[in-house]
Nucleic acid binder design. Structure first.
Length: 412
DNA sequence: TCTGGGGTCCTAGGACCC
DNA sequence: TCTGGGGTCCTAGGACCC
């Protein structure tokens, strides 16, 4: 039998070049051809232009250090709203060429080009070129594209000719490319797995692909079998067309430069995290059935408390008691923490009421937060928040009294 | 890389049931 | 009551990604 999946596939991986910087340049011509980096708000380089890369500046570097290496560098604040808008427009352009698009991350996409040659009267490479030029013309940003029979190979390809490059890996030539790729540079193979493979003298992607399947199954887990097959040209990882607006979990974390052990401040930060996570959950109309609280110590150990909730919720007031008990179960008096975090998990779209819940109370809280979200959307995200999270911020700053508390702890 | 923040998927092992 | 065999659900934690 002839099945669709046995047809040779043409998968493209589209990867924006220095995406944040390109978005900034597209909206501010002054930045063109200059050494540019984003990350001013944190003092750490987040993204940088190729000109800056050429001078030896790297991601994660302190801003002052970058300025020392390259005094003329322009450092700007990251503007994630802007990047997200460019991202949406980029995906829209891609969908004009093929409906099968996976929004993999803010600046990357996979798409299936299989069968489009006849429609465009050209090779896959030429179609990729047209896509690249369209994005450049309409958005003024640069992308690199890899084309190959599988996602894993396409992802490798897009990296090979950056910036503004196109690399097509044909089935017959796969081994030529794999020979020059280190095993840790394969998508899905990280440090730990690479270290294991090195013990077996598997150092290149070709070494990996040349193993027999038994070896892979013996030492590695399921995802690696998929990677193995894809490296050999067999497409087994599907393109996921679901938009990224559905979440399995939503988390918010905050790190401190100096570890903290003050219970009030930590709890305040956690409530802060909780409010942000809940706000995001409400935006996507999701409610959590499980609350996860975590603290990271100075030596990077993480302590986690998981709380199963009777009722799915996205309202901070309702979750604070659970948050507190979770916090108390992991907090130790004589330990300092460098990070607090909250995650909302087991998210559901429908709000199910338990028979024993006070439905009136829940409805009141929902109404209240609808209003809060509206006000915060209009006047800024921190206009209204819980008094305790506000006090924690002030306490950390060393002030005695909070100077802006609009909403007291509201009992609903 | 001496470590920011936000995600996903997979596995091993325990509890419990027939 | 014991042993053998098998299934399901849940949880903690690992690994990886951008």
């Amino acid at each position: 039998m002839f099945s669709v999946s046995s047809w040779p596939k043409a998968i493209a991986h589209i990867d924006a070049d220095a995406f944040f910087v390109e978005c900034e340049r597209a909206t501010n011509p002054y930045l063109k051809d200059r050494c540019v980096a984003t990350g001013k708000e944190r003092g750490i380089i987040t993204a940088l232009s190729y000109e800056a890369k050429a001078k030896g500046i790297k991601r994660g570097m302190m801003v002052y250090e970058a300025k020392r290496i390259c005094p003329e560098i322009v450092i700007i604040e990251s503007d994630y709203e802007k990047y997200s808008l460019f991202s949406i427009r980029m995906f829209d352009i891609l969908r004009r060429f093929s409906p099968v698009v996976e929004e993999y991350s803010v600046d990357e996409a996979f798409m299936n080009l299989t069968g489009l040659r006849r429609l465009y009267h050209s090779s896959y490479e030429k179609i990729a070129k047209t896509i690249q030029e369209t994005i450049k013309r309409e958005l003024d940003i640069s992308v690199s594209i890899g084309i190959a029979p599988t996602k894993v190979l396409a992802k490798l390809g897009s990296k090979l000719n950056k910036p503004y490059g196109i690399t097509a890996i044909k089935a017959k030539e796969i081994h030529i490319y794999l020979k020059n790729i280190r095993v840790e540079d394969i998508w899905g193979i990280g440090k730990n797995t690479a270290a294991l493979l090195y013990k077996f003298n598997i150092k290149t992607a070709l070494d990996f692909a040349n193993q027999n399947e038994y070896f892979i199954r013996r030492y590695l887990s399921k995802p690696y079998i998929a990677i193995y097959k894809e490296l050999k040209g067999e497409s087994v990882i599907p393109i996921d067309e679901k938009s990224k607006t559905s979440y399995k979990s939503i988390s918010k974390a905050k790190s401190f430069h100096k570890a903290i052990n003050d219970k009030d401040i930590l709890l305040g930060e956690l409530i802060n995290n909780l409010e942000k996570a809940c706000q995001k959950a409400r935006r996507y109309k999701l409610a959590a059935k499980r609350l996860i609280v975590f603290l990271k110590t100075d030596d990077f150990k993480t302590y986690t408390a998981k709380i199963k909730l009777k009722t799915a919720s996205n309202i901070p007031n309702i979750l604070t008691d659970s948050l507190k008990s979770g916090f108390m179960s992991i907090y130790k008096e004589n330990t300092s923490y460098r990070q607090t975090g909250v995650a909302l998990a087991e998210l559901t779209t429908k709000t199910m009421y338990d028979l024993f819940d006070n439905i009136d109370r829940i409805k009141k809280a929902n109404n209240l937060y609808e209003a809060v979200d509206k006000i915060n959307a209009t006047y800024g995200t921190k206009t209204i928040r819980l008094a305790r999270s506000d006090m924690a911020v002030e306490k950390k700053k060393g002030r005695k009294k909070p100077n802006v508390t609009i909403m007291k702890d509201i009992k609903v």
